[in-house]
Design a protein around this nucleic acid. Sequence first.
DNA 1: TACATTTGTATGTATATACATTAAATTCAT
DNA 2: ATGAATTTAATGTATATACATACAAATGTA
Lengths: 150, 150
Amino acid sequence: MGKIEDAIQQKEFKDPYNKAVVNLLFTHSYLVTSQNSLFKPHDLSPEQYNVLRILRGQNGVPTTVSSIQERMLNKMSNASRLVEKLKMKDLVKREECPTDRRQVDIVITEKGLDLLEVLEKQVESANREMVNLTLEEANHLNELLDKLRG
Amino acid sequence: MGKIEDAIQQKEFKDPYNKAVVNLLFTHSYLVTSQNSLFKPHDLSPEQYNVLRILRGQNGVPTTVSSIQERMLNKMSNASRLVEKLKMKDLVKREECPTDRRQVDIVITEKGLDLLEVLEKQVESANREMVNLTLEEANHLNELLDKLRG
DNA sequence: TACATTTGTATGTATATACATTAAATTCAT
DNA sequence: ATGAATTTAATGTATATACATACAAATGTA
């Protein structure tokens, strides 16, 4: 595969900026497709996995839906519905917040933590395999992406 | 904003590879959210825009659904349904292929070309604004992304 | 030619994104 | 203290992704 021009059969781009946007969209698809096959056997979507990781990061401290939303990779996703899906699988608990009855306290369950532990190892090693870069290059990529977003 | 650690409130990552994957997913969301607001007034999705661009690249030569699919940024998207949506808006024509009746010849219409012309200018300048990098950095980012995918 | 296999497209279903709207609880202002 | 404004979460709807399956047309083979 290699170059984006070959991958999507587009000869040229307006400028490196426009090429970078297309390249990012394409690379995203490459990564997500890979990740999906990993999550599939566990009946979890990448987005649900991400919510579980956010909750575990709380170390038992309950979190609200809006707080999850803020920390999600996709700011437009619907944390409320994702939490509902996770609850149906007993991976999270959802309780009314005692101090503010609008809010909902969400905590990851033991079952959720167990699943995360198994999955995380697989995800981490799959990510390393997917990213065909040296450590230095990966670091540089992170710098460029951080700068890109301003 | 800046660093991915601050953006999603995650203190550390397993390694630069895993950080890069998360960074890419997050940056993708940043770009797509921006693009969506551009396409919205024209009642077009980024994916539909992409299909129109692929068709225009054919310079009038009819294209099949599977050929579009191969060249899309997201290989898992459903070109058949996207074409149907575009056809309902008279942006593409769809005709039975004379040499192989399984295939469908798809061509962009005048209306589609006109819309593309207007939109493309906006997209190109929006992309340049979104990507807060120097030309050199953008080139380097493209190299890293190409290499990342192996 | 007859039949199995492959190919191209469409469709079915579940999940997620995008964005608007609703409804309840809380906060703010008068 | 009362009503307006804001906040939090849930819901509604359209579009897209992900993947399985169906079906017709074409191809390969006995």
